[in-house]
Amino acid sequence: MQGEISIQSWKKYRRQIGYTFITPALIVLLSFILYPLLFAFIMSFSTYTFVHPQFDRFVGLKNYTSSFHDKYFWNSLLVTFKFSALVVPLEFCLGLTIALFLNREIKFKNIFYAIVIIPLVMSPVAVGLIWRMFLHPELGIANYLLSMIKLPPVNWLGSPKVAFFTVIMVDIWHQVSFMILLLLSGLMSLPKEPFEAATVDGATRIQQFVYITLPLLEPVIAVALLIRTIFAFRTFDLIYVMTRGGPGVSTDVFSYYIYRATFMGLNLAEASALSYILLIIVMVFVMFLFRIIRRAQ
């Protein structure tokens, strides 16, 4: 009996110790994630602005619906969807190709790793500024290189039709490293036995890739696609530095639309509502993607 009591009190003590250790992390989590989320949620139903930072009027869903009549709201959503729909698959295909290449026994592997990691450690602002210099139509290196192979100069950021694809190209350059590293770590952790058995059975490399590598890599692919999709929907820095949403509204992504409502419209309530709209869209999209992946598994 005495022994049972002491075991129970030991379990209770252990639980208390656990709570003690987890409390600081919980406080940080609540303060830095949950509190701003709740604050923004409450704000989105009010008339809170930079000029009048008070919660004195409840306006219901007005902040959520007020942008619906603005054609540039819909344009920014469309641009964001198009941007995400293009960069995520392209980065995945390119990332997987490079990861497969790096997963083989090749010389100077460490040098390749270093090259791959460089864009990842650069801030989007630095990336944007550097690429703006490279892509200067008259003085940049990009058009100079094109001229050396007798190709005409490209108006990279000055043409509404080209600027969108230029931004996609730069985003891929910047973000593909993330895909490569994630997929490469997945490839390196795959068991060797199924490949050896398949080789003995006479399976070709393509068959091994389709029937062994891809199915085994599915969880990593799912995580990589989900994270990149979320980041792609939130793209802001690169657009801000490179095009400010232009020329015209050709690269006007939704995050930049929210930024304008915040710092130019000074309307924090409307900006909070727009941020929640983005959050809902991203969540729906991610859940949809997650379901497809689960079904495939």
Binding site: P137, P153, N155, L157, G158, S159, A163, T243, G246
Partner: peptide
């Protein structure tokens, strides 16, 4: 210059 619409 042709790139002017994108020049800062």
């Amino acid at each position: 210059p042709p790139g002017s619409p994108g020049y800062g």
